[in-house]
Design a binder for these strands. Structure first.
Length: 425
RNA sequence: GUGGCCGUAGCUCAGUUGGCAGAGCAUCGGAUUGUGGCUCCGAAGGUCGCGGGUUCGAGCCCCGUCGGUCACCCCA
């Protein structure tokens, strides 16, 4: 046993992995499904560094200057004494790149997607790792509510393609500046009147960011919030029209959703539309994917005053919440060599098949015939191609159909052409 | 960072009041000298997480430590 282990809160993806998110074939499935959908929705890939200056994330995360500690960001100091951080989410990097490369000067919206690792420095629990992977999309440069509809439907489509079970999409609108100016003082005043029944964290948040008290798990706090004034009653005309259009669009597409007027999300930059997809087949961390509109973020980061909206969804959580499925990788041909002299000819034939796109493998253990057939069976090979002394002498191979057991003899003295035909059906 | 639970073969797990380290699956070989799945036989595989203590004797009891897991915090 080695003394080395993967770092705390990380995991490996490897053949035969126990958990769904440890199995390479499921990752391929998710990534291919997502890329296919991004292409169909006309989103282009963006790749940004997995670390950035910490202040970029601090800027977007909001809620005070001790944010780096508070949010458990994976930060470090580089050799030039710069405060850096492994990215906790995809949006800030994408928006930074959008501004840095002047993408706002092109025809809008710019529709981007990314797939990559994100980091958080904390103890793990079910569906939560220090390094995890998010698939995300950002539609930048427009306030059109129909883009909100597109982004939400794209998230939903990815979850459907992956097979996420028991999913519910919750929707809310946090309003614009006008809405918050009207609502926040009302909420704060209400909480103030009931501060005796709140947990200490919520009492503190009542001042800094009263919206976030909705996220508290404290029973007393939740009881107070059940009667609290709702943002939906304070929406400006703009916000309320926006919400109505988003709902209309979702209904036109037949996307099931529920309004949750207590849904606030943790990031300060959200405005207007916010949404969250949850699955009851997860544990305490039941959010599979989430996102929202961030109309102030691009200008906050030094860009023009344009809106944007995006989502992020966790690959590990999608796989945890997905129905289990059979994905045994399948091989087309396995070569069974029954004599040492057959090994080089087998290598040559396998090479020829591989060039034709036919997945082929052979025994490298010099093992007995029985073991080789067992391996052919286990790898899911459609055909076993047998090279023994008889075959070598006659310039042929025996092709065995592994499911029916039927065998045929195929000449190979003139090359692999006949063998390619025999195993292509 | 805090707390509950758990660390025994590659995997899943038994292991009695402290008394020779076990099973199933997987692996390898054989039954079947040119044929996989089913069956049978056999082999290999162990720092019982690690360190210390108690004891004639510790997988088991005690202390510490490391790791895993779930929850809290936080939620990106």
């Amino acid at each position: 046993m080695t003394d080395y282990r993967g770092p705390r809160g990380t995991y490996d993806v490897y053949p035969g992995g126990r958990e769904p998110h440890e199995r390479p074939e499921l990752w391929i499935l998710v990534e291919e499904a997502a890329r296919d959908l991004f292409a169909r929705y006309n989103y282009s890939e963006i790749r940004t560094p997995i670390f950035e200056e910490a202040r970029l994330f601090a800027r977007t995360a909001g809620e005070g200057s001790d944010i780096v500690v508070q949010k458990e960001m994976f930060s470090f100091r580089d050799k030039g004494e710069r405060e850096m951080a492994l990215r906790p989410e995809g949006t800030p990097g994408a928006v930074r790149a959008y501004i840095e490369h002047n993408l706002y000067k092109l025809a809008q919206p710019i529709k981007l997607f990314y797939i990559g690792p994100m980091f958080r420095q904390e103890r793990q629990q079910k569906g939560r790792y220090r390094q995890h992977t998010q698939i995300g999309a950002e539609a930048l440069g427009t306030n059109d509510p129909l883009v909100d509809v597109e982004v939400i439907s794209l998230l939903y489509a990815i979850h459907q393609a992956v097979g996420v079970k028991d999913e519910v999409v919750y929707l809310n609108n946090l309003g614009d500046m006008e809405t918050r100016q009207a609502y926040v003082p009302e909420l704060r005043a209400y909480l103030q009147r009931h501060s005796g029944e709140l947990d200490p964290d919520s009492v503190a948040r009542m001042q800094t960011n009263p919206l976030r008290t909705f996220d508290s798990k404290h029973e007393g706090t939740q009881a107070v919030l059940a009667e609290a004034p709702r943002i939906t009653s304070y929406l400006s005309e703009d916000a309320s029209e926006h919400l109505a259009t988003v709902r209309e669009g979702l209904e036109a597409l037949g996307i099931p959703y529920e309004i949750d007027d207590g849904l606030v999300r943790g990031l300060d930059y959200y405005t207007m539309t916010v949404f969250e997809a949850k699955s009851s087949s997860l544990g305490a961390q039941d959010t599979v994917g989430a996102g929202g509109r961030y109309n102030g973020l691009i200008s906050d980061l030094g860009g023009p005053d344009l809106g944007g909206i995006g989502f992020g969804t966790g690959v590990e959580r999608m796989l945890l919440a997905a129905a289990s499925r059979e994905t045994g990788h399948s091989l087309d041909v396995f070569f069974v060599t029954l004599a040492p002299e057959a090994r080089i000819p087998a290598v040559k034939l396998a090479g020829a098949l591989r060039e034709e796109g036919i997945a082929s493998d052979l025994d490298y253990g010099g093992r007995g015939m029985r073991a080789q057939f067992k391996q052919a069976d286990r790898t899911g090979a459609s055909y076993a191609v047998i090279l023994g002394e008889d075959e070598l002498a006659r310039g042929v191979v025996t092709v065995r159909d592994m499911s029916s057991g039927a065998e045929s003899v195929v000449p190979v003295a003139e090359g692999a052409k006949d063998l390619i035909l025999a195993v292509s059906g």
